[in-house]
Amino acid sequence: MVDEAAARESPPASCWLGRVQMVLGDGWVRIILPHAVEVTTRIGDLRDATDDERAAYDARVARCRETRL
């Protein structure tokens, strides 16, 4: 999923891209980012990731995993 509410122009920050880990209720979910950080966000701020975004997420997870070994 992509959290577009996390994007901003100043300072520059891209959208969060992560997998939904847990539905918390009351419109909130917890997503896990590629580098294993969990963030809580509103369901209404999420959209489905594109195929390219999913591939980028998977590649980043693999890179992060390699650096931890």
Rank of each mutant, 00 (worst) to 15 (best):
M1C: 02
M1K: 00
V2L: 02
V2K: 00
D3K: 05
D3E: 04
E4G: 06
E4M: 08
A5Q: 02
A6I: 05
A6S: 10
A7F: 07
R8I: 09
R8E: 06
R8P: 06
E9Q: 15
P11I: 02
P11A: 08
P12I: 07
P12T: 04
P12L: 13
A13M: 14
A13I: 13
S14D: 10
C15N: 13
W16A: 05
G18I: 03
G18C: 03
R19L: 02
V20Y: 01
M22F: 07
L24F: 09
G25Q: 04
D26R: 02
D26K: 02
D26E: 10
G27M: 00
W28F: 14
V29N: 03
R30P: 00
I31F: 07
I32N: 05
L33F: 03
P34T: 03
H35A: 12
H35T: 04
H35L: 07
A36D: 13
V37F: 11
V37Y: 10
V37R: 13
V37L: 14
E38P: 11
E38F: 13
V39T: 02
T40F: 07
R42W: 00
R42K: 12
I43R: 08
G44D: 13
D45P: 03
R47E: 03
R47V: 06
R47S: 07
T50P: 01
D51W: 05
D51V: 10
D52V: 09
E53N: 06
E53Y: 07
R54Q: 14
A56C: 12
D58F: 06
A59E: 12
A59S: 15
R60N: 09
R60G: 04
V61W: 03
A62K: 08
R63F: 10
R63H: 14
R63V: 15
C64S: 15
C64D: 15
C64L: 15
R65S: 13
T67K: 15
T67E: 15
T67V: 15
R68W: 09
